[in-house]
Amino acid sequence: MFALSDLPEIIPVFPLPGALLLPRSQLPLHIFEPRYLAMLDDTMKTSHRLIGMVQPREGGETGAVHLQTVGCAGRLTAFSETEDGRYMITLAGISRFRIRAEVDGFTPYIRAQVDWSDFAQDPGGAGRDPDFDRERFLALLSRFFEARALATDWDSIREADDELLINSLSMLLPLGVEDKQALLEAPTLSDRRETLETLIAYALKAGDAGPEVMQ
């Protein structure tokens, strides 16, 4: 487990639209772009093995891409290399961070100076949601799955603890990039669950249905 004082001031960041990582969650990724293969090679040489996942956002200039200010760092816990040189990796979420500045340098990927202090609770134990009405939440989720023609393992959903359930759904449900960012920035687990409920209810009201499958 990382202490706040163990977290580095500068980390590589990986901007990927819609890919949400949260503390104590697992994010599998398929890496094939040369610049991010270089990022992985460099990360594996560090003691912390941290990569910051962050949502890109479109800037005012044509084709310009900027970064959201809040992301989440994950520790590289598993990787395998394919015969053609690509990586299959898993990041374990450690803590959210706030980007203070991008760091100039010669790397083909982005590095950022980050501040962890706003999220001092993240490296600790699991978050709690004392007001979570699981039955009401599952009823809402069932309506959403039916409207979207989603299939999933209901037994696993019913048995998951509160944080695993809320964070996994936040990461996996087909929601927009801005919605994912709102879920990431929710201060507490209760706030994230309330945000998720609001997003699901809004999607149901909008009636935007389409066949998808969630594993």
Rank of each mutant, 00 (worst) to 15 (best):
S95K: 06
E83M: 12
E83H: 10
A73W: 04
T43E: 11
P56C: 04
Y87A: 14
A78S: 14
A78T: 11
H48K: 11
T69G: 05
E83V: 12
S47M: 11
V65M: 07
G85D: 06
K45F: 02
Q68S: 06
R49D: 06
M88V: 10
E83N: 11
T90L: 15
Q55I: 02
T62R: 14
Q68D: 11
Y87I: 11
M88Y: 06
T69W: 01
V54A: 05
M44V: 13
C72I: 03
L50I: 05
T43C: 15
H66T: 09
G60Y: 01
G63Q: 02
L67P: 02
S95V: 05
D84S: 14
Y87S: 12
G71E: 04
L76M: 13
E81N: 11
M53Q: 05
G71K: 09
M88E: 14
A92E: 12
R57G: 02
T46A: 13
E83F: 08
P56A: 05
G74W: 01
L50S: 03
S95C: 08
L67C: 07
R75E: 11
R75K: 15
F79H: 14
R86T: 14
D84H: 07
G60P: 00
I51S: 03
T77K: 07
V65R: 04
E83D: 15
V54S: 07
H66D: 01
I94W: 06
T77P: 01
I89W: 09
Q55V: 04
